[in-house]
Design a protein around this nucleic acid. Sequence first.
DNA 1: CACGCTTACGAAAGCGCTTACGTAAGCGCT
DNA 2: AGCGCTTACGTAAGCGCTTTCGTAAGCGTG
Lengths: 346, 346
Amino acid sequence: MPRPGPRLRLVDVAERAGVSLATASRALAGREGVSEEVARHVRQVSRELGYVANPYARTLAGGASTTVGLIVHQIDDPYFSEIASGVLQVAAEEGLLVQIAHSGRDPENELRQLRHLIAQQVGIILIAGSGYDDPRVEAEARAELAGFQRAGGRVAVIGRHALGVDAVVPDNEAGGRDIGAHLLSLGHRRIAVAAGTPGLTTVADRLAGVTAALAAHGHSPDDLAVVHSDFTRDGGRVATERILHYHPDRTAIIALNDAMAIGVLSVLRSRRIPVPERVSVVGFDDVSVAADLAPSLTTVRLPMTEMGRMALTLALKPKATRPRRRSTGHTLIVRDSTGPAPAPGR
Amino acid sequence: MPRPGPRLRLVDVAERAGVSLATASRALAGREGVSEEVARHVRQVSRELGYVANPYARTLAGGASTTVGLIVHQIDDPYFSEIASGVLQVAAEEGLLVQIAHSGRDPENELRQLRHLIAQQVGIILIAGSGYDDPRVEAEARAELAGFQRAGGRVAVIGRHALGVDAVVPDNEAGGRDIGAHLLSLGHRRIAVAAGTPGLTTVADRLAGVTAALAAHGHSPDDLAVVHSDFTRDGGRVATERILHYHPDRTAIIALNDAMAIGVLSVLRSRRIPVPERVSVVGFDDVSVAADLAPSLTTVRLPMTEMGRMALTLALKPKATRPRRRSTGHTLIVRDSTGPAPAPGR
DNA sequence: CACGCTTACGAAAGCGCTTACGTAAGCGCT
DNA sequence: AGCGCTTACGTAAGCGCTTTCGTAAGCGTG
């Protein structure tokens, strides 16, 4: 059992291996300038001794930081915790540390967290979650990230674009179209949308998809009753109350994420409005509980965990000249919350 | 706009404030040996310049590390993500960094993560999640933590005991008793338990509470049908299948956490077994979706976010001579998934 | 008013690592 | 043999911070 005595340093390893500090460092970093034979020996000794480099010293000395900073809106939102899970998986494989910071869906705060991570000298920054429809904030974020990259940092974003960096983007618009098409094929014509805050690009994109689907089938976007609220479960509740009040004729409600859909279902249940007989409900994301709700939720599946993995993997590659973009697949998962539109005559 | 040029260093702040490096360091650290007047001035300048200390340099130089390592079983489990959220809140208030690592409910892996965090020189370690009923692993973990604390590290655990460190512990046994009493009062006598892996102390404690409640009412623990499986939603599914098969006479199923309860409900729904008319279901934890399931879940509420906050707060205080223990409150939340036991004669 | 004592501050020594830079050895070439 | 080139390694200079130690100033005391 390794006694937790005075910490093992690189000099100790070097000494034990009979080489200089510099050589030991090079050998372990896999840098060239060391014969393969010596390098192997050093690695061997290091392993025997159970040496783990001090990341603080390493980073301070100018080595690449092995810390990745992950900014999420809210870690206890399943969408983000699944993404985080994917990031953690890859990080564990690569021996990286992951720091998580909350932005709380507040652009200003996100910017603050971002600056903080940069100041902390993390090596990689990952930002998950929708962007904001606020040119000033986005421009500042973009500038901040550009500077960070110029200084050798790597960045990837998940589910947002327009930041001039590598991105993993679900095709929100196509997902929205799939939902629209699905409801139309079931005969729904009077559709409502429980949308999140208008300032979020994710909301805008998904909504655009829905509208496009309607248009493609010759329906005017004016037919759509769009109600904005928070992009959360409570937001879903509020939106539903409003939809039921102002648009009582709707036969389907599209929630632009699953969190909102849960709120929608909750209100409908308490009002004893049968789903899907009287109103169909669709979500977006397919968080893991979606299948366990009653009725189980029809939604668009996004591979969140995989998105987290992809983002870190992308950031680990050397920077390309142009920002890369990886699209994720998406699948409409039809479950029990959607059904044929009720007959028009009631 | 702060140009992302060459990083601002403490010397820069010191120079700008017209004091020496040492004084600036002391002023910002709030250490004594600086007149209040000078200290205030330095802080002022630091703020104006937007200075953020380099944590790597700070830690390397022997200052207390400002990083807290958080080990969770699985971040995309709501129980843990809510705890993590609480930890992140306090960390943000205190200007600390949070590193999250997965243990994956594997004792060996948890030990590995723990050693890694220690080697990384984090200042505070938080371990969330049930302990293991494996004396060897627990002893090693305990030894590792003791060494870490001897070296000045601080530790707190959440939801587990017997590690000889400060702990935030929900009263799992009392919660179990509440559940047992609730079901008995509804007339249930033939009760089944969908329990998690037997090796987890949380499982053992909650189960003990249930058994105690039965005993207190003069029922033998043998009356309880206990089925062990994974402490997850899928485990809940598996356990339910087995309960329905081997103990078809049960009128209530206690899932020892909400994740399992979701699995239980899912199977009952697909079998068209009415809840709570034919079978009542109870969970434990009150994760946020519990209220939105159909039927909404009767469960024992644990203040997870608060637990995360408490743990970090505890770890931030200087070490006490004896490990401290903070109990969290717990409340039985009765919702729609429990009801009177069906009449005996079918 | 010399004495010690405290207090506020500066100079400088590292923390453990990476990485120029220097050097000696080995190689092929003229 | 002598030249320059490459390769393998060691020496030492920091990275930005904390902290020990030294010193000068301020204070009350006999």
